[in-house]
Each structure stands twice: as structure tokens, then as C-alpha cells.
Amino acid sequence: MNIFRLAGDMTHLASVLVLLLKIHTIKSCAGVSLKTQELYAIVFATRYLDILTSFVSIYNTLMKLIFLGSSFSIVWYMKYHKTVRRTYDRDQDTFRHWFLMLPCLLLALLIHEKFTFFEVLWTFSLYLEAVAILPQLVLLQRTRNIDNLTGQYIFLLGGYRGFYILNWIYRYFTEPHYVHWITWIAGLVQTLLYADFFYYYFLSWKNNKKLQLPA
């Protein structure tokens, strides 16, 4: 564990906490894309299939449980909680997210490190995570009405991706044989998707103004 990896995990954790705080305390999910949250739930479910069979550390298992539990509970809140679900921007959040899954699955079947059930699903989760933010970014662009918590949630998620890239660079230079092209390229694509959002986030932060995206 290096400092970049830890910082990445902590920003990831913080992003989830910010979102849960918004949903649980303010009882609102306005501006949050259910499509993206459903994709994340699938990402964690397929990536952490090995949670019972392979043990790395208590830290890892605990974090996996947190990400699984939080992603499914966020989906539950948005779909079924009587107050929260009323605040969901159903009409704006129309990205056809299921269509992202098929290409990711096909790509995972074609490009993977090992052709086994667990390995293909694990690779699928990497590809799907790379594009899972798209419905959220489209929703932001449409509503243009971004409250602070939603902005911070996406900012922290992007931060998590950025720190993971630094972690990979660090590990590449400090650990022999640490080469994982699939993880890196999927991670890089994912981080690039945030670039536009980051640009406007920093602009609003610099000018001390509310975050607004151009039409």
C-alpha cells in the first residue's frame, strides 16, 4: 500500500459518504443519476465475486463490503425510498445505460488476461467502470443545476481515479513485473471522461462561483 493508493481509496470512500449524506440526511437525490448508480452496483458485484474465496487483507475485504453495500443501498434509496425517490430526476436521466453493458461484455470476452469465468467478469467490471459515469455527466449537462454535494461527489470520484493512476505509476517503478495494461487503459479512459467536468469545477472554484456547466 502506497500513499497514492490510500489517497485514492479514501477519496473514493469520501465520495460514497458524500452521496449517502445527501440521500440520507437531506432525503434528496436530485441531480444524481440512478443509471450510473446501477452500473456501479453491477461493477462492484462482478468485481468482488471473489470476496469469499480470495483474502488479501481485512482492509480490502472491509472496503469491498462498504462499496458493495453502499452502491446497492443508494440504488435502493433512489428506487424505493418514499421521500428520496420523489426527488429523482427521472425525466432527465434517460441515458440507455444497459446498452453500455453489452459492448463491455463483448470486449471482456475478447480482451482479457485469462479466459476464465471470474477473470472475464472482473475484466468486464473494469470496462464498465470506465464508462459508468457517462449517464451522470449527461444528467449534469442537462439539468445544469448542480448543488454542492453532487459537485463534490463527482469531484471526489474523479480524484479517486487520478490517485489510482499515480498509484500505478508508483508501483510500476517500485515493483518488478507490475504491468497491467487492461487495468491501466480502462482507468485512463475513465479519468479522461472527467477532464471536462474538472475544468468547469476548477473554474467555478477559482471564481468562487456556483458550478455551472455550459449548455
Partner: peptide
């Protein structure tokens, strides 16, 4: 064995 390294990430 190399592959196990990646699995230690989240």
C-alpha cells in the same frame, strides 16, 4: 502470480 498483484486493488 503477477496477476494477483492487481487483485489487491479495489
Amino acid at each position: 502470480e503477477e496477476h494477483e498483484e492487481t487483485k489487491d486493488e479495489l
